[in-house]
């Protein structure tokens, strides 16, 4: 009898231990969607105000330098304004999503005119850079989950940091990629590298995030490089000033406000 008791207690203990071990291992093994959730969560902010230096380098190594500010509020309001060079200063682009429809307006100060731009430009180049409008949305840390469905396909080290490796497929027609591969640092869920594949499945662009800094309890990369592997050009974004969760009035995101300097 005594022996039986001991046996049962050992059995129960073993089961308990196994259960704990099992649940721990399950916890460690996140799904791709869960990783994206965490990424979005870490980067989430109601509003942002960035000033960044933009360097566009073409395949021959020639450069164009620009300085812009990006302000976003919520998920559906954005304003980009040129600060430098002088001849395009105050040129501004307003994006607003209303009733599921994306609207874009451009303000050219030299003719004092606000122009609506075709929404299919969304997959076009952002201000002549190697980013599409959609790519640039992600820079500020917008919803990856909104645009992509992802799957965890393994773990790999990027510059010594262990990362989740995700394969994500766009859920929107307006995104001109067939697949995005993403390396997310396990420690803090920061995306370090993204590879974009064109509709033919060929590697199109590589985005690299460098030098993460903690700003207002948000980890933010100081340098973002987007390289077009097919054209040989690249765009380097250097974040100069970053503010999160600041008060941005709704009127900033109106066409009337565009014309004010």
């Amino acid at each position: 009898m005594r022996k039986t008791k001991t046996f049962i207690s050992v059995l129960i203990l073993s089961i308990l231990l196994l259960t704990v071990f099992f649940s721990v291992s399950v916890m460690a093994k996140m799904t791709g969607e869960e990783v994206l959730d965490k990424v979005d969560e870490e980067m989430d902010s109601d509003s942002r105000d960035f000033i960044l230096d933009m360097t566009i380098v073409n395949k021959n190594g020639q450069k164009r330098d620009r300085k812009i500010t990006i302000k976003t509020k919520g998920e559906n309001k954005g304003l980009v304004k040129f600060l430098e060079p002088g001849d395009v200063k105050n040129t501004a682009l307003l994006t607003r999503e209303e009733n599921g429809e994306e609207n874009m307006w451009l303000y050219l100060p030299s003719i004092g005119n606000v122009n609506k731009i075709a929404s299919h430009s969304k997959s076009g180049n952002f201000m002549g850079t190697d980013f599409t409008y959609n790519d640039i949305d992600m820079v500020g840390g917008s919803n990856y989950k909104k645009d992509y469905e992802s799957e965890l396909i393994g773990e790999e080290k990027i510059n010594g940091d262990l990362c989740y490796k995700l394969s994500a497929v766009p859920t929107k027609d307006s995104i001109n990629y067939s697949e995005m591969k993403m390396w997310v640092r396990k420690d803090d869920f920061m995306p370090l590298k993204l590879k974009f594949y064109d509709k033919d499945g060929k590697l199109h662009k590589i985005m690299t995030n460098k030098n993460y800094r903690n700003i207002d309890s948000h980890l933010t990369p100081e340098t973002i490089i987007m390289k077009d592997e097919q054209k040989g050009s690249k765009t380097i974004l250097e974040l100069e000033e970053v503010q999160y969760n600041i008060e941005l009035a709704n009127r900033i995101f109106t066409t009337r406000y565009l014309t004010r300097n």
Binding site: N58, N60, Q62, R64, F82, P85, G86, D87, V88, T91, L106, L108, P109, S110, I111, I117, S121, G124, N125, F126, M127, G128
Partner: peptide, 25 residues
């Protein structure tokens, strides 16, 4: 100059390839 620069920027945003077939970087 400002007007030209802004027109160029607009063209660059609308159709980069078209612009590049008439103007160097």
């Amino acid at each position: 100059q400002n007007q030209i620069a802004q027109y160029l920027l607009l063209l660059e945003m609308s159709d980069k390839e078209l612009l590049e077939s008439y103007l160097t970087f």
